[in-house]
């Protein structure tokens, strides 16, 4: 029985971690470029409702995923235009985007309440996921594998690719990057669009995979956890992966402990944990002398305007 439960716990925690990981990967790239977009929750909701709506209408979940990414990216362009082109305050714009997303997704979703779709097909043949070991490797939704691929891609992109180095340079010192001829604004636009698309994908995980349905505020605040995760991971993709699974494990194990009849601490204190842990990590990386290098991108949240 223990192996079966263990495998099931792993699968549940991967499921809980994946949408947060997807959204956080996008936000990580955004923040690495020096932009702080607090509108994650709003973009995730827009992605979730779009994914559901398109899948419900066309019958194609793949189309739903593409639409969710497009919708998330489109929503992020409102943010980009205001903060990058018009140099508006990023904190205020991000919060407005979240309010906007909650409202818009609710309006779009009115016709989809109470409906369901069949969700995403698995990519691996069912036979592979027959035995427990096979299941823990091959038994997930395609989005889980995509999130792993994207983690590797973002890690490679930021450290190995030329474009990624430019993006990081812009996040560390936009002025310097600008003076040697890089287009700060264009790169940040692309980063924000990527962040929006990934948030849309994260939202789609809820409405197509986790609970194939739409209801108001389906993501129930996960966007804020994703935001915390980026900081918790000190802006590093591989730590982000570990952090997402750690957050997922805390959430899953709490429920498993309760299902096994074990009540250790009041659930409210467990719910505080991700946020408290994030504050602790943030403090630690600020204290550690080596951590300074890994700390927040220098230009995070700062508007940039080149004139001429």
């Amino acid at each position: 029985m223990t192996t079966a439960i263990l495998i099931s716990i792993i699968m549940t925690l991967v499921g809980a971690a994946t949408p947060i990981l997807l959204a956080a990967l996008g936000e990580l790239v955004v923040e690495k470029s020096g932009v702080l977009n607090l509108g994650l929750e709003g973009m995730m909701l827009i992605g979730a409702v779009t994914a559901f709506g398109v899948t419900f209408t066309t019958g194609s979940a793949s189309l739903g995923l593409v639409a969710a990414m497009a919708a998330g990216a489109a929503a992020s362009m409102i943010f980009a235009f205001l903060t990058l082109t018009l140099t508006a305050n990023q904190v205020a714009t991000g919060l407005a985007l979240t309010i906007f997303g909650i409202g818009l997704s609710s309006l779009i979703g009115q016709n989809f309440v109470g409906r369901t779709v069949s969700g995403l097909e698995h990519i691996f043949p069912a036979a592979l996921a027959d035995d427990p070991i096979g299941r823990v490797v091959f038994g997930y939704s395609p989005l889980v594998y995509l999130s792993l691929v994207m983690t590797a891609f973002v890690a490679w992109f930021l450290t190995r690719s030329r474009a990624g180095l430019i993006l990081r340079a812009i996040g560390e010192s936009d002025e310097a990057a600008h003076s040697i001829g890089y287009s700060v604004i264009r790169v940040r636009y692309l980063a924000v669009a990527f962040g929006g698309a990934m948030a849309g994908l994260g939202g789609a995980y809820y409405s197509l995979v986790m609970t194939p349905m739409w209801a108001d505020r389906l993501t129930a605040g996960r966007g804020w956890i994703a935001l915390a995760l980026v900081v918790f991971a000190s802006w590093r993709p591989l730590r982000l992966l570990g952090g997402a699974y750690l957050f997922g494990a805390v959430m899953t194990l709490e429920l498993h402990a309760k299902a096994a009849g074990i009540n250790i601490v009041p659930p409210e204190f467990l719910a505080m944990l991700p946020y408290l842990a994030t504050i602790v990590v943030l403090t630690l990386i600020s204290i550690a002398p080596s951590g300074r290098r890994n700390a927040a991108p220098a230009c995070l949240g700062k508007p940039f305007r080149a004139t001429g």
């Binding site: 407005a96 985007l97 309010i99 906007f100 909650i102 409202g103 818009l104 609710s106 309006l107 108001d216």
Partner: peptide
Amino acid sequence: AATGMFQA
């Protein structure tokens, strides 16, 4: 929801 969008 329309009011929320309006404020945003």
